[in-house]
Nucleic acid binder design. Structure first.
Lengths: 1311, 328
DNA sequence: CCATTATCTACCGACAATATCATTATTTAATCA
DNA sequence: CCATTAAATAATGATATAAGTAATAGATAATGG
């Protein structure tokens, strides 16, 4: 077995752990292989445990868990969970039902803000109204947090705590060690040692809970543990043996725990150092001495960031700050900084007392301060009002508790900054959608709360030290971190159940395995965010005013009016109301004059230190903010699969790949930055910087019949709208550039890192949104690697090739491209010397800014006299030629396809796009000669670019309409085509492209068809159990039936509220029962769930208006069409993502710097050859696996026992007319196995409609049968048989003879 | 004058109609057509009673009818004594049917393949051949030469068309650029409710306010649902533009304001005025009535006098708004 | 149950209708035994 | 005091809103007789 992925072993000192994981990594990448490395303990999934904690539901729980044990196999090859339609899913996935997630969030807010009265009320209501659901979803963690609320403060209420303890136990909660710790703590704090002891005695007698577990509970601070000693000494007198035993256990435990800190640090150090990490990690600072993360502090850039912090009281230290602390401070104190800046501004001007200088101060800041001051009293008042409400006001009850989580000052500044940030968002001129605003404000509050909450409970020093230390990315470190974290959990709380707020779907309680217990911290549902956000927004709207010079309408004298800075209004969009919040004109003006940098929250900026490696699915990236490794929106299913995969260590290699991407150190290209700045300040349109609009655009003249003909008026208004739209677009484009420039400025001369996460298919994206290497040409031009590497001969060559590529000269052989650069050296030098005044050769490039960046590099190398030694930072790109088709060709072993996309070697790059463009061109030429006007117009204008997207997406299933739209967009960009003809021309062209493509990619298309077909079958399938429970199929066994009946019994007993969940299975609306999404596992082990389901949005009342929000918990039927059409592209993308991540890791291990934009891989010039080897090796490694076969097997396993509806024509005797399954296009090639089930079906139903369980009365039956008779008579020759067939898949398309190893020899595979 | 006219169009059964006349494509829902001659005759009788048209007056009127459909109403108009009826029908099957009627009416009925929904039609109608000679800018009196009539579809198009008629009256556009032209329209019940929605009711809406400000409305006759294909309740409504619009504000502003305050028609006016713009509530100070009245003019607890003031929207509020907004 | 009609238009990064009224469902108050 | 009923309130569902369809076309899901 080749070993490209094994990290260079440095010494023989590697411990078992790291060995094991290297092996694991190989096994997963290279070969499908049964997973053997998980201890059985791992399969004890926390959430299943959660179910069984409740004795009252135990019968259900055991029934369902037994029942599911067959399909809940997460320690097999793949993670397989119950279908979302099955009752087990919500429980297993911990998806909270509607309403309960809200109540839990409120409960937590009450607890955290110390208002236990309100917490009690929430708890009471939950148990009163949702008692049945509580039995399932109320978790002991929630209970612990709740009980702890009574005893955590200065005035503990142990008796209340105790009362609730008893009550909750009676409700069926099984207390755990933490529960006892909490209750005991209350009494200890009051000095009621006797009661405490009695409790512990009781626990000892009645439970199996170990004393040690109680004492080391994370709810007990060390000093609280210490009080156990007092208990011990108080109780010494007792002679009871029982007591003495208890005291002994207690003492041992307490001592054990109190010693633990030291122990811990030792272990962590040893763990970490036993890895390949060259230096041991000291357990305490200073550990940064040998970590040169940031440049010396006099750099321009860092000063800006430090200014961010300089406003803080202890800011004198800011300049001396270590970059790690700086990053931490930036993340955690963003709002404090912003606030302090406002304060300072004011103080400073007051002190100076000079009004003159005050004028120079930012007027916006002055106003913001004013809003802030006005808003605070309103906020206080509101909080008081919320506290007052005893009875009815449900809104206040919902948002009230959250307002007490943060200081009012912070709430206010968050609101102000968020609203300013959202200016011009979602396509609203000078405003934003209300829904977006309130949710974002709520989200910001939540994030800030989490950050401060973390800071408060944070003792994760060691973890972070280790994590941040890790330029060393390795599984071993990850593992060690996790283990250490788990070990440390006994004394230190950690971040875990704080999921990243961007996902509104949540696991109610994610209990990681092991002893670790997390503080319970539920994610706020969007409805809560909206409610909280709306109060704040509404208060800000009320308080924010802006001075406007005006006239008194009566007297005409000059006055200053204060008008609202924001106002809430509505817009109609195609007849629908949309709530928006608008800026007043004056505010818009003010904002546009002000640089945007102060509204940028550092949480969204690149990092200045290495990102934390991904330890788990939700643990990595920024230092303090919790983020997810996958971008998931509203899909509990996705989250659950990811969670399980993470907990079962299936995605370590994926995470490692992300770590590698995050470890790339970048810097701003100062030279390019200067030119950008110059261009920006000139206000002209240069490259992709839009012009600044100084004066409003000229409106067209009103036509003569404007006043009499509605049509004329309409046309004119439309023209005006178009112009305004253009203006708006320019403006927001300029804003965008502004953000980018400001971000770049902030990081001048400072290394920066982009923490990465992925979309649900595994494609990686940098988390910081504004400036990153995935951005447009400008962003890419502004960025280069921080590290420089000498070019060397090969590097110099690649640099020149790259130069040509960026100019657009990329379809020629490498040597031709080299020559191109040399021939244009004059232009390049001119571009460098006079970028804005010279011939501006670079501006004509396809990617001007990157080209300029390359010009600088080439020129510098060229002029250095010795290019080979030139230290280069420029990333050189190697792009897959039609990467999607490459994967298709590899999957299908398609010889022709392989040749077309450079999988097999050629002496110059093959380019399908150009090929197709040429074909279309000749077609068009021919028709032009025949006099076709469309063709004549298009003659010679069909470039590669025009057809590229369509060719690419053709194998992803693009339709004619889609293709036409793509081409339309390309044509619109050209100025040599009259706009009014664009539509017709694109239609014509799309047809031509389609016909040119013809049979071209048949290999790929066969696979695509198979994928689409399989996805459709899956999306339409239904688990057998569902059919059985609806009486459509017979039960397998009486036992199964009995289990089902008891469950139904229980459900009936539940409150009526739940009856809707008892969806009846109706044949009328088949799509309502389609609940299975397409799920597969990438070769790296990442489970991928296609999230496409029906949307279930609901109106949520907030203070400002109702907002329309996705209801996350409702399990909605899948969108079968989307599932099937999206599968081919998603599958291929998941493969290219896999290839990229594999390559990233391999590059890292070879010491290459690596970055990627999906199918474009970047590295230093002199490393290109090495990287090229890696790319090819990894591609071969990936495609040497039987990917399609694996997928086929996985589907069969994953959807075992699923059924799909089928109708087939039968002759009179009921014999099938043809054996084919008409429901699928490929099915004709399938020999559908005659399953015994089909026979059963037939016997059961014959030819009649499915006899639904709903009591058909005789009347209907008669009617039905007569109808049937008529039917048979009417169409006497035709009879159909409707069956639920076993879900099978078409046989895989035959694989061709292409040998994947040829890729190795192909120069232009990536180029 | 003329002998007794008794033109009767051929009315197919519903089933046949469904086959032959259900129009696909252009209109998503089949356009409604009056399908009962008796109803048409009755409607016309009532209309004539109400307007008290003399035969002489009718002789000098040119009738423009949109969406004649099967021609029941066309025939009734002809039978009632009109001598020149342009029937604007865009769809071929109906047009054929109309041509039969045209023949039988000795050319009094003139079918044109035009669409009453299309703005272009009204430009074309200004042609000397059609209504050109009767264009009359004098709004002090109703244009004596033109009667505009027809059946509105029950679709959203019909609704849009009616709203646009109102708009055009206010702005003297399209049809009403030819003068103060009275209309007699068959309007589906649902639309009629909105068209005439009185203050305080649920039906009160933007359109009813505009209508109130620009025309006098009278419902003449209500057809049984069965009289229309496909079955739907319809009303014959007589609309006479008033000589002086009650709306003093510029139309676009008026429309903007109306649209915005009707977002929440049950809320007090004072609240909704705030959504008009930053600080728009200052205009409330200049209002000569209590702005706590609901936007839709709900009567509850509101004096008759106040109600009246609010209903004359164009006079008070909008004028105020305009003055404020056009200040330097 | 079949024929007509409405709804899509490759995927991902990046999200978002709302007010009002009628009808149930649930809670609170009230009344009564 | 409880049980039962009446009244009040919350939750849920349905519907209207604006106002020129843009242009085109082929498969498939949804709907209605």
């Amino acid at each position: 077995m080749s070993l490209p992925l094994v990290r260079q072993a440095t010494a023989g000192s590697r411990n078992l752990l790291s060995l094991r994981h290297s092996k694991l990594c190989l096994g997963h990448v290279h070969r499908r292989q049964p997973t053997i490395l998980y201890s059985d303990a791992r399969s004890h999934l926390p959430l299943t445990r959660m179910i069984s904690t409740s004795p009252l539901t135990s019968s259900t729980a055991t029934a369902s868990s037994q029942h599911q044990s067959s399909d809940l196999s997460s320690d097999g090859k793949h993670i397989i969970l119950p279908n979302p339609s099955r009752p087990g899913f919500n429980q297993t996935a911990g998806v909270l039902p509607s309403g309960i997630s809200e109540q839990f969030a409120i409960l937590n807010a009450c607890i955290q803000s110390g208002t236990m009265v309100r917490a009690e009320r929430v708890m009471n209501e939950l148990y009163r109204n949702r008692s049945e659901e509580m039995k399932v979803f109320m978790d002991v963690q929630v209970v612990n947090a709740f009980l702890n609320g009574f005893v955590q403060g200065a005035k503990p209420l142990p008796n209340d705590c105790m009362a609730w303890f008893d009550r909750l136990v009676s409700y069926g909660i099984t207390p755990d060690a933490n529960t006892y710790a909490v209750v005991v703590k209350g009494f200890l704090k009051l000095g009621s040692y006797h009661t405490a002891r009695m409790l512990l005695q009781d626990m000892r007698k009645n439970t199996n809970i170990q004393m040690l577990d109680v004492v080391k509970s994370s709810f007990l601070a060390p000093e609280e543990v210490a009080t156990f000693h007092q208990l011990i000494s108080q109780s010494q007198s007792s002679t009871q043996q029982e007591v003495q035993e208890l005291l002994h256990e207690l003492e041992v435990a307490a001592n054990n725990v109190l010693d633990k800190d030291a122990m811990n640090t030792v272990t962590s150090a040893s763990l970490a150092s036993s890895d390949t990490t060259p230096h041991a990690i000291p357990s305490h600072p200073p550990i940064y001495e040998n970590v040169p993360e940031a440049k010396p502090m006099d750099a321009i850039g860092v000063r800006f960031l430090q200014e961010q912090l300089s406003a803080l009281q202890n800011s004198s230290d800011a300049l001396k700050m270590d970059p790690f602390d700086l990053q931490m401070a930036l993340e955690q104190q963003g709002y404090e900084v912003a606030l302090q800046k406002l304060v300072h501004m004011r103080e400073a001007s007051k002190e100076r007392g000079d009004t003159l200088n005050a004028l120079h101060l930012s007027p916006l800041k002055k106003i913001m301060w004013d809003w802030h001051e006005k808003m605070i009293p309103l906020l206080r008042e509101e909080i008081v009002n919320c506290a007052d409400v005893v009875g009815r006001n449900t809104e206040r009850r919902a948002y009230g508790p959250f307002l007490s989580l943060l200081p009012v000052e912070k709430l206010s500044i968050i609101t102000i900054l968020e609203l300013l940030r959202l200016h011009n968002s979602s396509g609203i001129a000078d405003g934003m959608k209300t829904a977006r605003a309130v949710i974002d404000v709520g989200k910001a509050v939540e994030m800030e709360y989490n950050a401060t909450y973390l800071k408060r409970t944070n003792k994760m020093g060691e973890i972070q030290n280790m994590a941040s230390y890790g330029k060393q990315i390795s599984l071993a470190v990850r593992k060690a971190s996790i283990q250490q974290q788990e070990a440390a959990a006994a004394t230190a709380t950690s971040l875990d159940s704080i999921d990243q707020p961007t996902s509104s779907t949540t696991l109610s309680t994610t209990q990681p395995s092991g002893q670790m217990t997390d503080p319970w911290n539920p994610v706020w549902p969007n409805s809560i965010r909206a409610k909280v956000g709306s109060v704040l927004t509404s208060l800000l709207i009320d308080s924010a005013k802006i001075p406007v010079p005006s006239y008194n309408p009566d007297t005409g004298e000059k006055i200053t009016e204060h008008i609202p800075a924001f106002f809430h209004t509505y817009q109609y969009v195609r007849g629908k109301r949309v709530g928006i919040i608008k800026f007043s004109d004056q505010l818009t003006m003010l904002v546009s004059k002000e640089p945007l940098r102060d509204t940028l929250h550092p949480r969204l900026m690149p990092m200045i230190v290495h990102p934390r490696p991904w330890l788990r699915y939700n643990d990595g990236g920024y230092l303090s903010a919790k983020s997810m490794c996958m971008r998931i929106k509203d899909s509990p299913e996705q989250l659950m699969y990811l969670y399980k995969a993470s907990e079962n260590s299936k995605i370590d290699n994926v995470l490692k790949g992300l770590d590698v991407l995050g470890s790339t150190k970048w810097r701003v290209n100062k030279q390019v930055f200067d030119v950008v700045l110059e261009a920006w300040n000139s206000g002209e349109a240069i490259a992709d910087i839009p012009p600044s609009i100084t004066e409003p655009m000229v409106l067209p003249e009103k036509p003569a019949d404007y006043d009499t003909d509605p049509k004329a008026k309409f046309n004119w208004v439309n023209k005006v709208k178009e112009i305004q739209n253009l203006e708006k677009n320019y403006h927001s484009l300029r804003c965008d550039v502004n953000y980018k420039v400001e971000t770049a400025r902030a990081f001048l001369n400072l290394p920066m890192y982009f923490p990465h996460n992925m979309d649900f298919r595994g494609r990686a994206y940098p988390i910081p949104p504004t400036l990153n290497h995935l951005g447009n040409d400008l962003c890419r031009g502004l960025l280069c690697f921080d590290e420089a590497k000498p070019l060397g001969e090969r590097g110099w060559r690649w640099l020149r090739i790259h130069m040509a590529n960026l100019y657009g000269y990329d379809k020629h052989s490498f040597s031709e491209r080299e020559n191109f650069t040399m021939e244009n050296m004059d232009n390049i030098l001119d571009s460098v010397d006079n970028p804005m005044t010279g011939r501006k050769w670079w501006l004509e490039a396809e990617s001007p800014w990157q080209c300029l960046s390359a010009c600088y590099e080439v020129a510098a190398a060229y002029r250095s006299g010795n290019p080979l030694e030139f230290e280069s930072r420029l990333p050189i790109h190697q792009d897959g030629t039609c990467n999607g088709l490459q994967h298709y060709a590899a999957l299908g072993g398609d010889l022709a396809g392989a040749r077309a996309v450079n999988l097999s070697p050629g002496d110059r790059p093959a380019d399908v796009y150009t090929g197709v463009a040429d074909m279309v061109n000749s077609l068009v030429e021919k028709e032009a000669k025949e006099g076709n006007a469309d063709a004549q117009m298009l003659m010679g204008k069909i470039s590669r670019k025009v057809v590229k997207q369509t060719v690419m997406t053709n194998v992803y299933g693009v339709t004619f309409i889609g293709a036409r739209a793509q081409i339309e967009n390309r044509l619109k960009e050209r100025d040599d085509i009259p706009p009014e003809r664009v539509y017709a021309l694109s239609s014509y062209l799309a047809k031509k492209v389609f016909s040119s493509l013809g049979e071209m990619f048949n290999g790929a298309r066969n696979i695509q068809d198979w994928l689409t077909d399989s996805a459709r079958r899956i999306a339409r399938s239904v688990p057998k159990e569902t059919l059985q429970e609806n009486g459509i199929l017979p039960f397998d066994s009486p036992e199964q039936e009995q289990r089902f009946l008891t469950r139904v019994e229980k459900e009936k007993a539940k409150s009526k509220r739940l009856k809707k969940s008892n969806k009846t299975f109706s044949a009328r609306n088949p799509s309502a029962n389609q609940m299975s999404s397409v799920i597969w596992t990438t070769p790296l082990g990442l489970p991928i769930v296609q999230p496409y389901r029906r949307t279930g949005k609901k109106q949520v009342t907030t203070l400002l208006q109702t907002v329309f929000i996705e209801d996350p918990d409702a399990s909605k039927p899948v969108n079968a069409m989307k599932q099937s059409t999206a599968f081919p592209p998603n599958f291929i993308h998941s493969l290219d993502a896999t290839h990229m991540l594999m390559s990233a890791v391999a590059c890292y291990e070879k010491g290459l710097t690596f970055a990627s934009v999906h199918d474009s891989y970047w590295t230093h010039a002199n490393c290109v050859d090495d990287m090229n080897m890696v790319i090819r090796d990894q591609f071969i490694a990936l495609h040497s696996q039987p990917i399609m076969e694996n997928l086929y097997e996985e589907f069969k396993e994953r959807y075992r026992n699923y059924r799909i509806p089928n109708s087939s024509e039968v002759d009179k005797s009921g014999q099938p007319v043809s054996k084919a399954t008409p429901s699928s296009p490929i099915a004709t090639t399938t020999t559908t196995p005659v399953s015994p089930i089909s026979a059963e079906n037939e016997a059961l139903f014959g030819l009649v409609d499915t006899p639904l369980e709903e009591g058909d009365d005789d009347d209907e039956d008669e009617l039905g049968s007569t109808l049937l008779d008529q039917e048979i008579k009417a169409s006497s020759s035709r009879k159909y048989k409707y069956t639920w067939d076993e879900l099978t898949f078409a046989p895989l398309p035959k694989k061709g003879d292409f040998d994947i190893n040829e890729v190795k020899e192909s120069d232009y595979f990536f180029h | 004058m003329s002998s007794i006219r008794s033109l009767v169009p051929k009315i197919p059964s519903m089933a046949t109609w469904n086959k032959a006349f259900r129009i696909k494509g252009a209109l998503k829902v089949p356009r409604c057509t009056l399908a009962d001659s008796l109803t048409a005759e009755n409607g016309f009788k009532k209309l004539k009673d109400y307007t008290k048209w003399s035969q002489a007056e009718m002789d000098q009127m040119t009738v423009v009818e949109i969406n004649p459909g099967l021609g029941a109403w066309t025939s009734a108009l002809y039978n009632g004594g009109f001598n020149k009826i342009y029937s604007l029908e865009p769809t071929v099957p109906y047009l054929k049917q109309l041509e039969v009627l045209a023949e039988q009416s000795q050319g009094a009925i003139i079918p044109l393949k035009k669409d009453g929904y299309d703005w272009q039609t009204y430009v074309e109608l200004k042609d000397p051949e059609y209504l050109g000679p009767y264009i009359n800018p004098d709004w002090s009196q109703v244009n004596p030469n033109i009667l505009f009539t027809g059946t509105l579809p029950k679709s959203s198009k019909g609704e849009q068309l009616l709203a646009q008629f109102a708009t055009c009256i206010v702005n003297k556009m399209a049809l009403h650029s030819m003068g103060r032209i009275q209309m007699a329209l068959w309007i589906p019940d649902q639309l009629y409710q909105k068209f005439t929605g009185p203050p305080g009711t649920n039906a009160r809406c933007k359109m009813s306010v505009v209508t109130e400000a620009c025309a006098d409305i009278e419902v003449i006759y209500s057809a049984e649902p069965g009289a229309v294909y496909p079955y739907a309740p319809y009303h014959l409504v007589h609309i006479v533009p008033i000589p002086k619009m009650k709306i003093k504000a510029e139309w676009d502003v008026f429309e903007y304001v109306l649209k915005h305050i009707f977002v929440m028609q049950k809320q007090p006016l004072s609240k909704m005025v705030r959504t008009l713009g930053p600080g728009a509530d200052i205009i409330l100070k200049r209002l000569d009535f209590d702005p706590s009245i609901a936007v839709d003019g709900n009567k509850e607890g509101i004096s008759e006098e106040l109600l009246l003031k609010w209903r004359t929207l164009g006079n008070s509020l909008l004028l105020t708004i305009l003055t404020i907004y056009t200040l330097p």
